[in-house]
Amino acid sequence: MVIPAQTLRHTFLRHNKKFPHVWCPGCGNGIIMAALLRAIYRLDVSKDDIVLASGIGCSGRMPTYLDFNTLHTTHGRALTFATGVKLARPSLNVVAIMGDGDATAIGGNHFIHAARRNLNLTAIIINNSIYGMTGGQYSPTTPFGARSTTSVYGHIEHDFSIAELAVTAGASFVARATVYHAELMDRLIEQAIRKRGFAVVEVISNCHVQYGRRNNLGGAVEMIRRFKEQAVHVDRAEKMSAEELRGKITIGVLTDRELPISTEEYKKVRERARAARGGKV
């Protein structure tokens, strides 16, 4: 189903918000925002029942433009606020949108514990391998040897895989896409929101302004084209050796499993507490 862009704009963008947005021309964030909106459009949930929480950074601004219950929190803390919202009002669909530094450096502790806790939440992590808004400093996903404004002599630390971290930490659903794979991305996001349990979608994105430029990766078009070349669908990746997968980006659903959800388990705690206390406090 093709959803006209105009429908998305008129349905979901805040008309009283003074555009233009803060993102650079060619930024992947717009593609991701549109994919998110297509997913939500297909979910057919009332806008009143959606909460979009973000942290700080370029990704953090996305909720500002969208006509939901929106929450622009502090750096790295989106999942903690989202946890409170979800527990207090479990009927809401709560989506946290974060960047790589936001979710896995300053917010790394919250991220792994949110995955372990397995609340019915969705986390979308835009991974552009750099701190864009602050001027191009290295992040936990900046590759070894890469150049940034804080590693001009070459980066000496190793990056980690956000999606694999989420799998290990216990998330119910983990998927990855790149901004080239816009349609795959909206299907993954839709699946993630529908999933009962903590669901993570990592989106590999381009920051040609702060990252591409310093690492001779060209502009937005060149970077996104490279994502297309690097991407290997998970079905195919499973048949490839580690050697063959070097420098590739595995896309698709990495994990989809049924685990007890703490929001559901807490209902049982309430029943036990009521029974134990006989209605008295």
């Binding site: 909460v51 929450l71 803390r77 409170g84 919202v85 527990l87 502790n109 919250h110």
Partner: peptide, 16 residues
Amino acid sequence: EDEIASIGAVIGASLA
């Protein structure tokens, strides 16, 4: 997981 998260969740709950 820590006090930073604790007050974050408190703020989220209050907003809800």
